[in-house]
C-alpha cells in the first residue's frame, strides 16, 4: 500500500524526533545561556558598583583620617598637647647647651690612631 500523509506506516521514526529534540535543546539552551549570561553581567555590574561605592567610602574615610593626622601635626596642637600632658619637652634653653670645641687637627688624636693600628696589625702570639 502506498504511503502518503493519510496512510502512514505504523513504525516509529526516531530521526526527526531526535533532530527536533536537539533543535529544541539548542534553542532552549541558547535562551537559558543568554539569560544566565545577562544575569551574570548584571550581577557583576551590581557587585562592581557596590565595590566602587565601598572604595569611595574608604577613600573618604582615609581622607578624614589624614586630615585628623594633619591637625595633630600642627605646631599649636602639638604645643597644646605637650602642655596638657605636662611633658618636660620644649625648645632648649641657652643654659642647657654644652659647647664642645673641636680639636684643630681632627677628631682622633694621633696617639689613639697609632694605638688602633697597632692593635689591628698585632699578630696573635703562638
Amino acid at each position: 500500500m502506498a504511503k502518503n500523509r493519510k496512510n502512514q506506516g505504523g513504525e516509529f521514526r526516531a530521526g526527526p524526533v531526535v533532530r527536533a529534540a536537539l533543535l529544541c535543546l539548542f534553542l532552549g539552551g541558547s535562551a537559558i545561556g543568554y539569560v544566565w549570561q545577562t544575569q551574570q553581567v548584571a550581577k557583576l555590574g551590581v557587585e562592581r558598583r557596590q565595590k566602587e561605592n565601598a572604595l569611595a567610602r574608604i577613600e573618604s574615610e582615609n581622607a578624614l583620617k589624614r586630615h585628623q593626622f594633619d591637625l595633630q601635626l600642627q605646631p599649636r596642637a602639638l604645643e597644646d598637647r605637650v602642655r596638657a600632658l605636662r611633658l618636660p619637652i620644649g625648645p632648649h634653653q641657652p643654659g642647657q647647651v654644652i659647647h664642645v670645641s673641636e680639636p684643630a687637627g681632627g677628631s682622633i688624636t694621633p696617639a689613639r690612631v697609632n694605638d688602633g693600628l697597632a692593635s689591628a696589625d698585632a699578630k696573635p702570639s703562638l
Binding site: P91, H92, P94, G95, Q96, V97, I98, H99, V100, S101
Partner: peptide, 24 residues
C-alpha cells in the same frame, strides 16, 4: 630669633662657657 636659632640648629658664634660646660 632665639626660638628660630634653636629650631634651625644654627651654629652659635658667641660661645660662653656656662656652668654645665664647665662641670663637664
Amino acid at each position: 630669633g632665639t626660638n628660630v636659632a634653636n629650631y634651625l640648629n644654627i651654629r652659635p658664634d658667641i660661645i660662653k662657657t656656662n656652668t654645665a660646660t664647665a662641670s663637664i
